[in-house]
């Protein structure tokens, strides 16, 4: 039996603001019936950017219903800018806390709010609130960006915590190594603030070259050198990056794999999504 607070119990038994708003000007749906929880949020925002009304429909457990109710209570009367500052942690706090395993319910509330605001602003949204970045957990459709946001906002340290907050890794478990990588990488990031992923707007040629050089020098080369290999940047031609593998890599039977899974993956992560790496044989 979950250790729900009285506030959670009160709100799942008697949720507030259940239903739809027919003339809503922002509607967002997050989660899915496959995952076992889904939330549809309706907002009515006036011309002074104040959220006049908020209603919800939820498929999910007790804490999902309570989190949805809490979210609507928290945002009604607030301006969009104020509402935007609400984090999943604030929703959990409003409820007097949630069991660790149920924190993903508060994340779902936060996701729905962000997505609804995007819709209202006319920004482009896809099925999930945050589908930028690849899907890490295929069972629950959790993206890398969502995992990163949640780790950052809640200062998470372990895979188990990530599962509790996002459900990622909770079913087949095949993405757990990937979650570990993200955690390790972000733990490193905390020390060196420089290694931020590149911004999303299109890069100029010079900026792209600089980032490619930096990424090879600071991230890729040290990883290859650990195994006695090395890498040389030969040319950057648009989004095609030409490199030569050196040292042990020359004779390595899996150098193709290294090229794709390490060099290209890291460049895509830190420079641009659509970079292609081509090998120039010595």
């Amino acid at each position: 039996m979950w250790d729900y607070t009285d506030k959670v119990k009160q709100l799942y038994m008697n949720p507030k603001n259940v239903g739809r708003i027919d003339d809503a000007n922002a509607v967002a749906e997050v989660g899915s019936i496959v995952c076992g929880d889904a939330l549809k949020l309706y907002l009515k925002i006036d011309d002074k950017n104040i959220i006049r009304d908020a209603k919800f429909e939820t498929f999910g457990c007790g804490s999902a219903i309570a989190s949805s109710s809490a979210l609507t209570e928290m945002i009604i009367g607030k301006t969009v800018e104020e509402a935007e500052k609400i984090t999943n942690r604030d929703i959990a706090d409003y409820l007097g806390g949630l069991p660790e395993e149920k924190m993903h319910c508060s994340v779902m509330g936060n996701e729905a709010l962000e997505k609804a605001i995007k819709v209202w602003r006319g920004e482009k949204v896809t099925d999930h609130a945050d589908v930028e970045g690849e899907i890490v957990c295929h069972c629950f459709g959790v993206t890398e960006n969502l995992i990163r946001d949640v780790i950052r906002e809640n200062n998470l340290k372990t895979v188990e915590q990530v599962t509790n907050y996002t459900k990622a890794g909770g079913a087949c478990g095949s993405c757990i190594p990937k979650i570990e990588d993200i955690l390790n990488e972000m733990a490193g990031e905390a020390g060196t603030a420089e290694k931020k992923p590149a911004e999303r707007k299109p890069l100029t040629n010079i900026k792209r070259m600089q980032l490619v050089e930096e990424t090879i020098a600071n991230i890729i080369r040290p990883m290859l050198q650990k195994d006695g290999g090395d890498i040389e940047l030969i040319d950057v031609d648009g989004r095609n990056v030409h490199v030569g593998l050196r040292g042990q890599c020359v004779n390595c039977r899996v150098s193709d794999v290294t090229l794709k899974n390490l060099v290209e993956a890291k460049l895509r992560e830190f420079v641009e999504e659509d970079i292609t790496v081509l090998e120039v044989k010595p």
Binding site: G36, C61, A64, E101, K102, T163, N164, K167, A171
Partner: peptide, 11 residues
């Protein structure tokens, strides 16, 4: 048999 009641979040 729901995921949410299982403790492992798995149906």
């Amino acid at each position: 048999g729901s995921a949410c009641s299982s403790g492992t979040l798995e149906p």
